[in-house]
């Protein structure tokens, strides 16, 4: 008998999503839509409100190795991507994986594998770009930076920056998803934040910003100027948070137009 089509309403967390997966399997229901508290409108399908439950989520999570290493990676990272209807795609991916076993990820031309894999590639590539494009300011002994990524890159950036600055206290704020990574020697956490303001830069901070901008301008070879090439490698959307493009950062504190999270 065909599974009943339903719309799952959940809290938008990974644990919540995994709880949905558990319930849908248990009740033999096929989710055709997922909604989070941020989505407003109504649905044509019977609504299932799923409350995130560590027990059921844990059971699904522990079953992920059945998808193989690559399959598990796609499922976990897939949830961090900005793929539209990512929950639906991941639901399909899970069903495919449970049915076919670890080798299913080799089927690169399968529409579901293809879709999720490309979204994860994009996530990885955005995270890789940010390992370079993040700019910290040293404010009162704490390194502080902000980013506006499309995907949820903080969990991917965490091991990189914690490994790189083991002795530093730093905070990196993701303004798109309103969360921040806090790190101090031996400890770290990624937590939701509502408001985030950088403090006033001191003399030394201003001097370093100025020297960096000077270096950046000097290193370009005039005879080779190539704005298009620069844009391909470093699209404009990154520039707003980069010291070398913020003349005002030499004197003022970085106060950027607030953007509301999606």
């Amino acid at each position: 008998m065909a599974w009943t089509s339903v719309c799952c309403q959940y809290d938008g967390t990974f644990a919540g999503f995994l709880t949905c997966v558990f319930d849908c399997y248990a009740n033999r229901e096929e989710p055709v839509e997922f909604r989070t508290p941020d989505d407003l409108c109504c649905s044509l399908y019977p609504l299932r409100t799923v409350v995130s439950d560590p027990e059921r989520a844990g059971r699904v999570y522990r079953s992920l190795p059945k998808l193989g290493r690559e399959g598990r990676r796609l499922a976990v990272r897939g949830f961090l991507t900005c793929l539209p209807d990512k929950e639906l795609w991941l639901w399909r991916l899970l069903r495919l994986g449970y049915a076919r076993g670890p080798g299913f990820t080799q089927d690169l031309t399968d529409p579901t594998v293809d879709k999720v894999r490309k979204a994860v590639l994009q996530l990885n590539s955005e995270a890789h770009k940010y390992t370079g494009f993040v700019r910290f300011s040293l404010l009162d002994g704490i390194l502080a930076g902000e980013i506006e990524p499309k995907n949820q890159v903080l969990p991917l950036l965490r091991p990189h920056f914690s490994g790189r600055y083991p002795q530093e206290r730093f905070v990196l704020c993701d303004r798109t998803h309103r969360e921040a990574l806090f790190h101090q020697p031996g400890r770290w956490a990624i937590v939701p934040v509502e408001e985030f303001h950088l403090g006033r830069p001191g003399e030394e901070e201003l001097a370093f910003r100025a020297m960096w901008r000077q270096f950046y301008d000097t290193i370009a070879i005039r005879e080779r100027e190539n704005p298009r090439c620069r844009m391909t490698h470093m699209p404009k959307r990154y520039w707003a948070m980069m010291t070398e493009f913020r003349e005002d950062w030499d004197s003022a504190l970085p106060e950027l137009p607030r953007r509301t999270a999606p």
């Binding site: 890789h128 083991p166 002795q167 530093e168 620069r230 490698h233």
Partner: peptide, 24 residues
């Protein structure tokens, strides 16, 4: 990898921190 008590790490693929006006 970075080690406690030090600062810094390197990655095999390398990392671009910015691109100058000549696209490099």
């Amino acid at each position: 990898a970075g080690r406690p008590g030090t600062i810094g790490s390197t990655t095999f693929a390398g990392c671009c921190h910015t691109f100058s006006a000549d696209g490099r």
